[in-house]
């Protein structure tokens, strides 16, 4: 009988501990606030984490309220937006520059082809010149042979 009572007490203790872990009590909250006040980095982490999990609509409303309350914050935000726009414009200009460079490279390709074609044309022209000289030489040989044969016939 005594052992059964201990089992029930242990089970109740475990259930209580679990429930306590899921919903932090006022003490845990106070401890967390104290820790955030002492450690700014921890506070920032907590805020960032909460922001990530927050509803965007709630964030927007919070931001609107903050903008209404703090004129400097509003000005900073506007400046930041302007910076973003300027960065986007720079990116677009960079993209345009890359496009122009790509066109230039394509244009270069045309010139490279022209240069190589010109080289081949000169090579073909020179080979035709050599061929013409060879044909001239053959004609000369044929002429000499014919003259010699005619001369030999006359002498015979």
């Amino acid at each position: 009988m005594r052992s059964r009572v201990w089992i029930v007490v242990a089970a109740l203790a475990m259930f209580s501990a679990r429930a306590h872990a899921e919903t932090p009590g006022p003490d845990a909250r106070a401890a967390c606030v104290a820790a955030m006040n002492v450690d700014k980095a921890f506070a920032t982490d907590v805020v960032m984490n909460a922001t990530k999990q927050a509803d965007p609509a709630v964030l927007r409303r919070t931001c609107d309220v903050a903008l209404g309350l703090d004129a400097k914050y509003a000005a900073d935000l506007a400046e930041h937006a302007a910076d973003l726009e300027s960065a986007n414009r720079r990116l677009a200009a960079d993209a345009k520059q890359h496009e122009t460079a790509s066109d230039a490279i394509a244009k270069n390709e045309r010139h490279v082809i022209i240069a190589y074609a010109a080289m081949w044309l000169v090579a073909v022209g020179f080979l035709l010149f050599l061929r013409q000289r060879q044909l001239g030489l053959r004609r000369e040989i044929a002429l000499l042979r014919r003259d010699l044969e005619a001369s030999l016939k006359e002498n015979a």
Binding site: K107, V112, I114, A118, G125
Partner: peptide, 21 residues
């Protein structure tokens, strides 16, 4: 000399096209 004329023509023409590019 004849080969030099051919090579010189290639040098001048390809150089000119390269300069344009």
């Amino acid at each position: 000399a004849e080969v030099a004329v051919a090579y010189g023509a290639v040098v001048l023409v390809t150089g000119s096209v390269w300069a344009k590019a």
